Measured scan of single mutants.
Amino acid sequence: DEVTIHLGDKTIRVDGLDKELLEILKELARRGADEEELRKEIERWER
C-alpha cells in the first residue's frame, strides 16, 4: 500500500505504512509538523 501525505505544497509518499503510524503522521501534520519531522517519525517506526 502506498500512502501519499500532502503537506501544504509538499507531498510525501510512503510504502506500507502501519495504520497507527499513519494516524500519528496525520496528527503531526495537522499540528504543522514539517516534512523533516514526519520523516523522522517514520524512521523511528521502521526500526
Rank of each mutant, 00 (worst) to 15 (best):
D1N: 13
D1F: 09
E2P: 11
E2T: 12
E2Y: 13
E2W: 08
E2V: 13
V3G: 10
V3W: 07
V3P: 12
V3H: 15
I5T: 05
I5D: 05
I5A: 05
I5E: 05
H6K: 14
L7T: 05
L7C: 02
L7F: 12
G8Q: 11
G8K: 09
D9N: 11
D9W: 00
D9A: 09
D9I: 04
K10Q: 07
K10I: 14
K10P: 06
T11F: 02
T11V: 11
T11P: 08
T11W: 01
I12K: 03
I12C: 05
R13Y: 10
R13D: 10
R13I: 12
V14P: 04
V14R: 04
V14D: 03
D15I: 15
D15C: 11
G16W: 10
G16Y: 11
G16H: 15
G16A: 10
G16N: 13
G16M: 11
L17Q: 06
L17D: 02
L17F: 08
L17Y: 12
D18K: 10
D18N: 09
D18S: 15
D18Q: 15
K19L: 13
E20T: 09
E20P: 05
E20F: 07
E20G: 13
E20M: 11
E20H: 13
L21D: 00
L21C: 02
L21E: 01
L22E: 03
L22H: 05
E23V: 10
I24H: 12
I24P: 00
I24C: 03
L25H: 00
L25Q: 00
L25K: 00
L25W: 00
K26A: 10
K26P: 00
K26Y: 08
K26L: 15
E27Y: 01
E27A: 07
E27D: 15
E27P: 00
E27C: 09
L28N: 01
L28Q: 02
A29S: 06
R30W: 03
R30M: 11
R30K: 15
R31F: 07
R31K: 15
R31Q: 14
G32K: 01
G32E: 01
G32Q: 01
A33D: 01
A33E: 02
A33N: 02
A33R: 03
D34T: 15
D34E: 09
D34I: 04
D34F: 04
E35G: 05
E35T: 06
E35N: 07
E35H: 07
E35L: 11
E35I: 13
E35D: 07
E36R: 09
E36L: 09
E36C: 02
E36Y: 10
E37A: 14
L38H: 00
L38Y: 04
L38W: 05
R39K: 09
K40M: 07
E41N: 04
E41H: 07
E41A: 15
E41I: 09
I42N: 01
I42R: 03
I42E: 02
E43W: 00
E43F: 01
E43A: 02
R44Q: 14
R44A: 11
R44L: 06
R44S: 12
R44T: 04
W45E: 02
W45D: 01
W45I: 05
E46T: 04
E46H: 05
E46V: 05
E46S: 02
R47I: 12
R47A: 15
R47Y: 04
R47S: 15
